[in-house]
Amino acid sequence: MLPEKGIGKSLIQELINKAKHCEGLEQINLTVISNNNAAKRLYEAIGFVTYGTEQNALRNGCQYFDENLMVLRLI
């Protein structure tokens, strides 16, 4: 059985809806591996924007991965 399409987007949007009711919360930050294009497209479709890149943020064995820093402003 294949997973339902759009479940990731629905989960993130529900989190954002709940976060909007948290007094004083102005933004949500996240990081995503730079070459994870599907995840980046999902976050961008919701409204996250990239504001930087941390080079060699993660290491798996001998391979390093950069991370994009993303933010969604709630106000």
Rank of each mutant, 00 (worst) to 15 (best):
C22Q: 15
R41E: 02
T53R: 05
V32S: 10
Y51T: 01
T50F: 04
G8D: 12
V49M: 09
S10N: 11
N56Q: 13
E26T: 02
C62G: 10
M70V: 06
G47F: 11
Q63Y: 13
F48T: 04
K9N: 01
E14L: 09
M1L: 08
A57E: 10
K9P: 00
E54N: 03
L74N: 01
C22I: 15
E14P: 00
E54G: 00
E44V: 02
L72G: 05
N36D: 02
Y43L: 07
L25C: 12
S10K: 07
S34M: 01
A45E: 07
K18N: 06
K20L: 14
C62T: 12
L15T: 08
I16E: 07
E4W: 12
G24W: 10
Q27S: 13
Y51C: 01
L2E: 05
T53C: 05
L58H: 04
A45L: 03
I12F: 08
N56W: 14
K40E: 10
I12S: 01
A57T: 04
A38C: 11
K40F: 05
E44H: 00
E4L: 14
E23Y: 15
K5V: 06
L11N: 07
L42N: 00
M70D: 02
K5F: 09
Q27R: 13
G6P: 08
E54I: 04
G61D: 04
E44K: 04
N60E: 00
L72V: 07
K9C: 00
V71I: 11
Y64K: 10
K5S: 01
Q27V: 09
K20V: 14
E67T: 11
L74G: 02
S10G: 12
I16H: 10
Q27A: 15
S10I: 00
T31H: 08
D66R: 08
Y51A: 01
N68M: 13
V32N: 12
I28M: 09
A19L: 15
N29I: 14
E4F: 13
G6L: 09
K18E: 08
V49W: 05
C22S: 15
T31Y: 02
N60R: 07
